[in-house]
Design a protein around this nucleic acid. Structure first.
Lengths: 198, 198
DNA sequence: ACCTGAACACCGTTCAAGT
DNA sequence: ACCTGAACACCGTTCAAGT
């Protein structure tokens, strides 16, 4: 059955397979290498079939971005906020930067600010969940007096922004990839201790 | 003369006009709205003419990115490193974030990590120049003992990375654009003083 | 409800030929 | 040296028609 399913008239789970295949193509060939027609050809379906599941190409890209934020949220899941704050903070930073370097094309898509208005709902849910762990981390450290007071969301997002920028610089080659770990440590140290001498 | 020049067989300065027009289109319609054929139509030249000046579309995008880094370098030019360090630092941050928000599509292109190998030379010259001012700013502050010791390039790039990440979050809507100034101040304060209580 | 095939209006790139 | 026009192999999107 499952052998012939791909050749039957109705595919069965075309939406899921389109998404999965699109993510693979994105990783291998970048956004520019992603075409709806090629995708349909790869799966063995007519070029017009994807329209049923994604109204246009942007809708597919939006769905990939949502899946990306969900995966980012998953990768934060086993972070703990116990112990001295520096360690959870460094673990979060490593997780984010690892996701960023392992999924460079995907990350660019996630922050490409091209979402269709329609995508907003599922998108913002996934985004909120992805950043929930860093925010909770900051809040827990504040309770222990290890972090200055202030809105934990704002503090968390400025911290993650520093990592996001570092990921961008790494991706562009402005910072050489081999030194990524050293840059990561330095970024965390600067964030925690500041640039002004103590 | 200049009225008929655009209609004569030889254009005269097609390369410069292609670049200028492309930057305008990029600003108005984004990268996705940028097509060589449309560009040629806008200028009033055959669709194959651009090939003489840019071997392919990527070469044009590279040239736009180089021009972007040059403009970024220009906008840093009148920053001074005198006075208490906090003020030059905030001025630099404002300049970068302003450039980022005023040229969102361009900035994305500048860090799109798709440079053709050929572009590397002019590109790295423009990049080096663009970041020279922030690096000099850090070095001067170190001399006055207002900044911790360490490689000024590394310190400057981690600082600019924090701004770059903030610009990305602003562009994606993760941080609302109206609060940009407040986020900027908070980012600079965190960078200078750190997140750990003093 | 889901998919196909043809049609339409676009692309980027190449290359002989024109000026 | 620079530009044109035709040709080629692609796109995304739409829509009647098929299952």
């Amino acid at each position: 059955m499952s052998f012939t399913r791909a050749r039957s008239y109705h595919h069965g789970d075309l939406r899921a397979e389109l998404l999965q295949r699109a993510e693979a193509t994105l990783r291998e060939s970048g956004v520019d290498g992603l075409s709806l027609r090629q995708l349909a050809r790869d799966i063995g379906v007519s070029h017009a079939a994807p329209t049923r599941h994604f109204r246009d190409k942007q809708a597919l890209l939006d769905a990939i971005a949502v899946a990306g934020f969900e995966r980012l949220g998953d990768s934060f899941e086993n972070l703990t906020s116990t112990g001295s704050f520096t360690e959870p903070m460094r673990a979060m930073a490593r997780t984010y930067l690892r996701f960023a370097t392992d999924n460079a094309e995907l990350l660019a898509l996630m922050f490409a600010r091209r979402y269709s208005p329609v995508a907003g709902d599922a998108m913002s849910r996934a985004v909120d969940r992805a950043f929930a762990t860093p925010i909770a981390l900051i809040a827990a450290a504040q309770d222990r007096g290890e972090i200055i007071p202030g809105d934990p969301r704002r503090i968390a997002l400025t911290a993650v922004a520093a990592l996001q920028g570092l990921a961008t610089f790494l991706g562009s080659g402005l910072v050489v990839a081999e030194d990524a770990d050293a840059w990561l440590d330095e970024t965390v140290a600067h964030l925690m201790l500041g640039l002004r001498p103590r």
